[in-house]
Design a protein around this nucleic acid. Structure first.
Lengths: 332, 332
DNA sequence: CTTGACTATTATATCGATTCCGGCAATGCT
DNA sequence: AGCATTGCCGGAATCGATATAATAGTCAAG
């Protein structure tokens, strides 16, 4: 139905090859008559010709396609990351094939949808477990995983170094007189491993980890925070930690919401911190003290790895930066 | 480099046609020998064959591609909508071509990226102005715009009916004793037109529109709310409205953040409402009273329009539903 | 022994764009 | 006049998969 180069050729009585050259700008190179070139371009415009990216790609030209696998689209962090990926992939002149999931286990068919696109690279955002990835004879397909800490052979990895961030955070809390720390996290690998690292660092800095409030909510990030908040409220005032560290902003927002609804003030009675630095976190009440993930930089780096594939597998970590806002204050 | 059907055919000494039929399951239909079919499928697996979606699409098979144009990816509402679109498009077995923008004016090249994909349909999320859209001889390409109120010829439209929602909201506010209403919005067409409709309805319900606090922030949704909050704080206590209605959740969160930082309590001193019902809005402090946009339903409806194209141009509106949470209370 | 029916497979055109390899004029040169 | 050069353009192969038409072989009935 759409207008093709063939239509233009027929209309003008020239060959399809000449049409192609005229439209791609390679006609002068072989010495085509300028007037002919113009005539072709004119009728192309007149007929409303739109090049067919599919055909072009098959022929070998056409922009390389980057596949993007997004785990757990229900998580605002991934949602925000996804939009940034779209932006950057687009800006670099890549084509994009996205697949987003609500669950952490991705099956064979899911990935096939991407692989069939003849990918130039695969970006995995978040840590969906795909044990079958090595089942494919990977034809030098560069794969970059963003945001998870797990190291895998043959897979580049761009993540955050949360240890330095947590050290900054805990020093900040220590300085404000906090000694007993609670922890709220979600029941997901990333969050759990983040927790275990944080625990060690907290002790190093001199903070006491309040095991009673080492709370692990469900695997729904949006609900985990509420659950954590409720458990904190249920605790007796004496056993409360003075600060609650959360493994993501979404969790922290939920915790704060429940705590303030229960009559506690943040940071008056309790300080709360997040992780991620979502766009909305600075607009929260109170604005969230959190560890900033340099999402843009991470994605830029990941796309670099796909653009200029290196034989060596890279594991790059960006330091998470402490952003102090109003959700933390002096310990009571 | 990847394994093609040709490779399989060569390896087995059969023709490419037979390989194709064996792999697509159309081999039995023409009475191919079962053993041959199995041999082909076996070596396909052994060689790690992955079908090439590009070639398939060129031939006419392959899934139809839906183009998605997302205006203003910086807005959390669009970010959340985009993820839902990805989910649903994927679930319906469509392929997806996304293009996201940070600005409201989209140029020729931007849309070309999508159009070159030989689209089965185009989904426009948000109201980027594209005056040149009718420059293209649209080859029966169904276009659906989501979320904007503007009516255009040849373009389906799925939006929210905010009038019924605002009526619910204003009645709710009236019942709680509110009489003087302020309004904070962003400097964007959608928000502006939403404002003008709200104003009329507020009067109908018996509320006085406080012109002094008809605040229109910048065109950055994330900043508009802060600006609005600051202007409210700067006002004298006497002239303050008792409730502030915002044209989006992101704006409302910003307003609340600034107000509470300035010593006002929400909803103690001032009620604040939003629009959209973002995922994070129920986790805010206080949880946001807002008008829920049935995003999933709207997208489902939009995809229906693309799947079963109708000659008649459809303008469908989904009612925004009032969700009462804790950011609204009795007027002081 | 020829015609028809059936089985199992292959040859080939097609989708739209690109590109290498030529080919046919007209002109220039000796 | 004969031959090479230049200018301008067409033919056909290619990318990978699929669908239609055709073919080689077997067997039975007339």
């Amino acid at each position: 139905m759409p207008v093709t180069q063939k239509d233009i050729a027929r209309q003008l009585g020239v060959s399809r090859s000449l049409v192609s050259r005229a439209l791609t700008g390679t006609a002068e190179a072989i010495g085509a008559h300028p007037a002919t070139i113009l005539r072709i371009q004119d009728t192309a415009r007149k007929l409303g010709y739109i090049p067919n990216a599919t055909a072009r790609k098959l022929r070998g030209k056409g922009k390389p396609v980057i596949g993007v696998m997004i785990a757990d689209m229900g998580d605002p962090y991934f949602s925000q990351t996804a939009t940034e990926v779209i932006r950057q992939v687009h800006a670099r002149g890549f084509a994009l094939a996205v697949a987003g999931f609500d669950r952490r286990i991705v099956d064979h068919d899911d990935i096939m949808v991407l692989l069939e696109q003849d990918l130039a690279g695969l970006l995995m955002i978040g840590g969906a477990d795909i044990p079958w990835l090595n089942l494919f004879p990977r034809r030098k397909l560069p794969v970059v995983r963003i945001g998870d800490a797990k190291r895998e052979a043959d897979i580049h990895h761009v993540g955050v170094d949360d240890t330095s961030g947590f050290r900054q955070l805990f020093r900040h809390l220590f300085k404000h007189g906090h000694r007993r720390i609670g922890w709220v996290t979600a029941n997901q690998p990333v969050h759990q491993s983040r927790a275990s690292r944080a625990r060690i660092i907290a002790r190093q800095v001199g903070l006491k980890w309040n095991n009673k409030h080492d709370i692990s909510g469900g695997n729904e990030v949006l609900l985990a925070g509420r659950e954590g908040g409720q458990r904190l409220l249920a605790a007796s005032a004496k056993s409360l930690p003075t600060a609650v560290v959360c493994s993501s902003d979404a969790i922290a927002l939920g915790v704060i919401s429940v705590l303030t609804a229960g009559g506690l003030r943040v940071p008056g009675d309790l300080s709360v911190t997040g992780f991620d630095d979502l766009a909305l976190s600075s607009l929260a009440s109170p604005p969230l003290t959190t560890l900033h993930q340099p999402i843009s930089d991470m994605i830029r780096n990941a796309l670099d790895l796909l653009s200029y594939p290196s034989l060596r597998i890279i594991h790059k970590k960006f330091p998470a930066q402490l952003v102090v806002r109003a959700s933390t204050g002096a310990a009571i």
